[in-house]
């Protein structure tokens, strides 16, 4: 009865706890009490909650990932993947020995709780700036960059023809998509127009092989343990079929180096380690021009995402201070674009 009382009390507090009740009933676990529910930062259309609970007096944690407030964001121009596909791909990844949290329970589509799933809690640092400042990670063998390269190679080798409803987006599709978004803002940012022009002139070969991409593989979306390295790859909501170079370049975009500009791979490693281990595991050869195309595309994409986030403030949907000020981070991507386009690439 204690359990029921606790749960009822929590349900009354807010909707978040309501979902957990469904899970508890379904799995019939012996919870004595839920001690804490916290929300993890990040995630534009999905939210990630950490639930602390006591199981026979031992405190445990579980993760719940679901659409914001359980409702799909219909206003999103390019809605991300359904959470059930995200969960299925994570399960395939888990079975292929890719470090990813184990899916514990998938919420039913028709559930009043909305779409989502529960997964195991994995320990590790997730904040990009904390990772690049940790001195221990530089001693790792294999290095963090090598680990990232082999993990990415494994992700890209997942056979995707059996997975239904995946989006395919190659270089030209991405370019058209982001041009449209930029056009909608009716802004005049000459560096962006220049970057679009450069990208059009430097499109990679249309025949670049199609792979299953993570879509957001960067420092900030990986969990890192200072003694083991990458313990988990998170935030699979942008996964799609595309050019392998897209994922490889996104990790090197300066915005994810957290100030460590001389370490192009996520602010923690060198390109050579990253590319070498990727090529060794995948057996594929990387194209330097394609990598540069996608790094420029990546910087431009982040700049446009900043504009989009500012627009959420401007539209009145979310009037928070950080949504407002993010518009002033667009100039960061402008300098990165100029340096990338007009200068030789850094060779570190």
């Amino acid at each position: 009865m204690i359990i029921l009382k606790t749960i009822t009390k929590l349900i009354n507090m807010n909707d978040k706890k309501f979902q957990i009740k469904e899970y508890l009933i379904h799995k019939d676990r012996k919870f004595n009490s839920i001690s804490k529910i916290g929300k993890l930062p990040g995630g534009s259309s999905n939210e990630t909650l950490v639930i602390n609970y006591f199981d026979n007096n031992k405190e445990e944690k579980i993760i719940l990932r679901r659409h914001h407030s359980g409702i799909k964001d219909k206003s999103n121009l390019y809605p991300p993947l359904s959470l059930s596909i995200e969960a299925s791909v994570m399960e395939i990844a888990y079975n292929n020995n890719i470090p990813v949290p184990k899916i514990i329970y998938k919420l039913n589509n028709k559930s009043i709780l909305g779409e989502g799933f529960f997964m195991e809690f994995v320990e590790g640092m997730s904040l990009g700036n904390k990772i690049v400042q940790n001195t221990q990670i530089h001693e790792l063998n294999p290095s963090l960059a090598s680990q990232a390269g082999s993990i990415l190679a494994k992700i890209h080798s997942i056979p995707f023809s059996q997975i239904k409803n995946l989006n395919t987006s190659m270089a030209n599709d991405e370019l058209i998509k982001y041009r449209e978004v930029y056009k909608d803002f009716s802004l005049s940012i000459p560096v962006f127009n220049m970057a679009f022009k450069w990208l059009e002139d430097n499109l990679p070969n249309k025949d670049n092989e199609k792979s299953l991409l993570h879509g957001d593989f960067r420092n900030g979306n990986i969990l890192v343990s200072p003694n083991k390295g990458i313990t988990s790859v998170l935030d699979w909501e942008l996964l799609h079929v595309g050019d392998m170079h897209e994922d490889l370049a996104w990790m090197c975009v300066n915005s994810w180096r957290f100030g460590k500009i001389k370490l192009p791979v996520g602010g923690f490693g060198k390109r050579i380690d990253f590319y070498k281990s990727y090529q060794k595991i995948s057996g594929k050869t990387l194209n330097k021009d394609s990598l540069k195309f996608w790094e420029v595309m990546g910087s431009l994409k982040w700049g446009i995402m900043c504009l989009k986030m500012y627009n959420i403030y401007n539209s009145g949907y979310d009037r928070s201070v950080d949504r407002a000020s993010i518009g002033r981070r667009v100039s960061e991507t402008e300098i990165d674009l100029l340096r990338l386009i007009t200068r030789e690439q850094d060779n570190d």
């Binding site: 000459p190 100030g259 460590k260 981070r329 100039s331 960061e332 300098i335 990165d336």
Partner: peptide, 21 residues
Amino acid sequence: LFKTTMEKLEIDQPNYSSFLD
């Protein structure tokens, strides 16, 4: 474009890595 962008960053984000570099 370089000059304009650097002048913008002097206002927006004068601690940004590429700006400082």
